[in-house]
Structure formats: C-alpha cells, structure tokens
Amino acid sequence: MNNKQLFAENWQTCLFRIKDRLEIPIQWYPFPAMIGFMLVMILGGHLLTDLNPRLGARVQVIPLESDRLPDGGIWLGVYEKDEEIHVITSDRKKFSWAQNSVDIENFEPLIRYLKLKTLEEAESTVIKMKSSAITSRAVIAVDQHLKYVHLRPILYSLAKANISRYGFETRIIN
C-alpha cells in the first residue's frame, strides 16, 4: 500500500471515529437543570406555607388531652440549655437569661418584643375592624424539664406587656 492510500485510510478511520463519537446522544444533560428546577419548586412550595414554628425549638411539651389549639396567637417556646432559660418565638427571635436570674432587666428584651406584638395586633384590629381572641392570646410551649420557678419570668413579662390571656401548649396523642 503506498503512502497516499495509507494516509487516506488513516484520516477516514479518524473521521468515522469522530462521527461515531458525535452521534452518541448525551442523555444526562437536561437532568441537572431539571433536578435544580424541581428542588426550587418543592422548597418554594413548602416555604410558602410557612415552616412549623416548633422546628429548631428543643421543646418537649407535655402530652395531655386538652382543647384543640387553633392556629394563631403569640407562640413562645421555653426550654433550658447550658443552665440558661431560652425563649424562642414563632418568628425565630431568641431571648435568654440565666436560670437563677432575678434581675428584671434581663427580661426587658422579651417584654419589648411582646409589647410590639400586642401593638401589631391592635393595629391589625383597627384596620380590619375585627378582633380575634385567638390571635391576641399567648401560647407558651414549656419544656417538660422546666420547673414552675422558671416560668415566673415569662408570666411576669406577659403581665408587663398587658397580655392577660395565655395558655400552655400540650401534645395530643391519639
């Protein structure tokens, strides 16, 4: 075989190989985009309906059969961690003080927050010309390991914020 024929044969072989490679369909290419799009849709769909306010709050409430808790109200989760009492709210604000604290100054941030919530509720009542006993009520989810002495600052804060109606959250187990 002379050089010319050899050359023709080599580049034609290469050409066939390139043609074969380019003819293989890349099946995976739409999937990263599709997975990303579907993840965004699912996350957006769940976040739009609001997250459970109890997520992230290490509060184990007492299991007790009681009146069903309606949605709404000023939710406070109270638990103990590292010898401090932590209070977490439904909008993820956190307050804390030492377990044996008796200094009223430590409760001022919580009192300010509660006053702000009652003010928002009052404004909403005026604008809507309708008030709801449920939304103006405080719901306290107390961890089972706490004692009553840890609860007193919370009740004091509610009283200072002019919230007279409150309740303790329980877990209904069928």
Binding site: F31, I35, L64, A159, R165, Y166, G167
Partner: peptide
C-alpha cells in the same frame, strides 16, 4: 429523579407539618 423528588417532598412535609396540639388556658387578672 421522580422518586427523589417524592421522597424529598415527604421528608420536607414531615418536618414542617406539626402534630396535633392542644392548649390549657389560664388568665392574668
């Protein structure tokens, strides 16, 4: 992919949905 989306959907919903909760009310005079 569909199975992954369904599983993620269930897991997210399970963590975001609350159980049944009740309330024991009290008052401040």
């Amino acid at each position: 992919s569909i199975g992954l989306m369904v599983t993620l959907s269930f897991l997210l919903r399970a963590t975001s949905m609350a159980g049944k909760y009740g309330i024991v009310t009290s008052e401040i005079p």
